[in-house]
Structure formats: structure tokens, C-alpha cells
Design a protein around this nucleic acid. Sequence first.
RNA 1: GUGAGCGUAGCCGAGUGGUUUAAGGCGUCAGGUUGUGGCCCUGAAGAACGAGGGUUCGAAUCCCUCCGCUCACCCCA
Length: 418
Amino acid sequence: MYKAPRGTVDILPEEQAFWRYVEAKAAEVCQLYGYQRLDTPVFEEAALFTRSIGEGTDIVTKEMYVFKDRSGKQLALRPEGTAPVCRAYIEHGMDNLPQPVKLYYLAPAFRYERPQAGRYRQHYQFGCEAIGDGDPALDSEVIHMACQFFTSLGLKELTVQLNSIGCKSCRPEYIKALKGYYQERAADLCPDCKTRLEKNPLRLLDCKRQGCQHIADNSPRSTDYLCPECRSHFEVVTEFLRSLDLPFNFNHRLVRGLDYYTKTVFEVQPLAGGAQSALGGGGRYDDLIEQLGGKPTPAVGFAAGMDRVVLTLKKQGIPVPPLPLPEVFIAHLGNEAKGEAVKLAASLRSQGIGVVMASGDRSLKAQLRQANSLGTGYAIIIGEEEIKNRKLTLRNMVSGEQQSLTPAELRAVLGKGT
RNA sequence: GUGAGCGUAGCCGAGUGGUUUAAGGCGUCAGGUUGUGGCCCUGAAGAACGAGGGUUCGAAUCCCUCCGCUCACCCCA
């Protein structure tokens, strides 16, 4: 028997209400903040990601789905959404549009990882990017928008973690200080951290091991090494967040796994959460567009994991609106009636009324049971009597009341009710 | 990639070597007289017990391998 590949899931009809709800809220929030949707291909040239995310990152070295097409071109399934948006920005000359250009996407992303709660090989991201302006007001707006998205869904008890990791001019100084600090304590580090010290020193900060906690807590802070430009940028971001009454935790240990971030980085997570609980994160990436071949262009963005959002909605018991059902079920008895039912169904649908017609030739009892389990508000019954009288029986499935109506009367009643 | 737990019908789940030709519940289907749902009642279909191999007179129950799920690490949304 075939099964969905490891780390992938089918989103079944009974799950769809959650997803449609989240998608609708995402689109709503984007409209509110002036973001326009951009859909990019699921696959891109592999180099786009290795250049943007970083050659040495885990995403690139061990998680990307890379393959050659028949012409031998190296392609990769999109592991994240920012690089493709930047590629499209450059490719379509969006630097000629009024800046910043605000774009959003709802798209699957692919990473070859060991599946876990809230972590899949195919997952869905909602992301938005504001490209072309370095204004710190945009950083705070993006953070505000992220929070707006989560709270509009009804999610509760969220925290925003905020940090600034500087830019290419001040970060090297900080990395040096961080390395120096850790080198002195290398003997006390866990094995993972020993390799981090060489490979990716920033990641030392969010080691979860007991023994490394104390060391990380007291490590040098990136915010103490910011250049004047980055410092004032960060100050303005926090000032705006305060003026928006948006609570945040300054977290000097917050770093992100993608190389392109500069200055502001942030993450949103539920208060009570497991390991994979971050609902979304983002930050500024002022060097990325240039790195991908565009003009020097500042940008800021964020992405949310839709799967985790849905998971959290369920965990917090937040009700989502049910998906609309067809209003009417048509039951029929006998061949002639079935013919009438086919025509009636088509005619009601052409009026915009949703109809499920009983298929097969089952007993009326069975047909009404089906109507009941579908949850349609009405059932129409067509049998010999109705055909003889040129009328239809309309049964209200909630009250159980029935009336005998002509087709015209029926249309009037149903048209009014919907 | 590492470590731990788990895997019985569509779903939940009993059963841990021999009256198991594998409970029960939900769901599905059909009935409970002649054309009527939701409650109730009856009946039916549906599983060689994740896959493959092994131990044994005998395995869903023990062992091995693989696959998958869950959790933690790694990493990230």
C-alpha cells in the first residue's frame, strides 16, 4: 500500500476549516498592511538558496531537496520563502516601483529533516517581505503585523523575542568577542558547542544544554557591539514597539539559522511551548538583494509556520468557523423522480444554491440519513406524489417541518433563506 | 544524523506464546412493514494483528532487519 512520503501529510477535508481560516486571516492582515501576494515556483536554481541561506548552514548542507532536471540543471525544492521573493524582485525590476515593495506568500517549503511535532518535510509558510527601505519603522511594522496575524486568529499567550545582531561592519567585532569568551570556557562546553564554536559561533547562544546555559547567559551581547547606525536603528525599533504597546522580550541569545539576517531579528512563540514551538520569525536582511545580484537594497520580513499555527489553534481550543455546506439535499423515489431531481439540482445550482443530489437508488430513509449526516438545512423530496401534483416537498431538517411547494415557490423560499 | 517509546479493521482500542476461526466502541451499509433523518433496537461488511525473516509443536504476543509514527537532540516555520 502506498503511503504519503515520510514527513508529509494529507490535509483531509475535516482539517480544511483550520487551513482556510488561517489563510483567510493571513490575506486579511496583508490587505491591512498593504502587502500583495506573490506566488513563486516550488523549485528554483539550487544556487539561489545556497547563496542566500548560506553555504555552511544546515538547511543547505543537509536539508535541501536538490536534484538535476533532464538538462542537468541543479534545482532545489524551496526550503524557505525569502530568497525566491528577492529573486523575483530583482528579476522583474521591482526596484523601479515605489519603495518599499511589500509582498506576501502562502506556499509549501521543503526540508529533509527528521519529522517531529510541528516539523515536517513539506510544511507551509505564510511570509511577508518589505523590500527597498531601511526605515526602522518597517521593522516594527513587520513585528506588529506578525503579532496582529496571530492575535487575529485568536491565539493567546504569545511572546515576542527580539534582538539585534548588527550588520557586516559591526558583527565581525562581536563574533570575535563571542569566540574569545567561549574559547576561555571551551573545557566546559558540550560537544555540540565545541563544534559550533568553530562552525557557527552565533548558534552557541541558543544551546539548550543545562551546562551551557550559564555560559550563554553571561556571554557578550551583540547589542553591546552595535555600530552607531545599528544601535540607533535598534533603539528606534524598540521605541516604536513600545509606542504600539507591543510587549517584547529583549533576548540577547536569540539568533537565527539563516545567514542573511542583519540588525533586527525576532521570533514569536507561545508561552507554553515544546521544542518546536516557534510560530514564526523574521528580521532584517539588508545585504541579501545585493548578494543575489541586485542593487544594494534593504529589506525586512517574517515567516510563520502554518502547520504550527494550526497545531496551536487546536492546542488552545480556539474555534474556527465551519466551512459552508450545500444548503439542500435532494431525495428521489423512482426513475421519473430521479430525472426530475437531476434537472432541479442543476436549476438550483444555476441560482447559486448549493445542492447535493442523492445518487444511487436507496430508500428514502437512507437518503434522509445521508442528508442528516451532511448537515444540509433542507431536504427536497421528489416521488410519485410530487410528480403527479407538479409540486415538491421541502423538508426543513432542523425543525422537521414540511411543505408542499411548486417549483417557483421553492425557488422563492430557498432564495430568501440564503 | 543520534537516542528513547510505539505500530491490532476507516478511526479509537482489548488482547503480551495455545477455547483468538482476534473483544468492544465510533463510523459505514442494510433493516425495524406500505415514501421520511437526527434517539433507540437488530443485522451485515470490514483486520491473516506495519512489512519481511527467524525461534517454537504452536506467535498479534519472543528475537532480528526494514518501514512508519511520536518525543527529545541537531536544526528550523
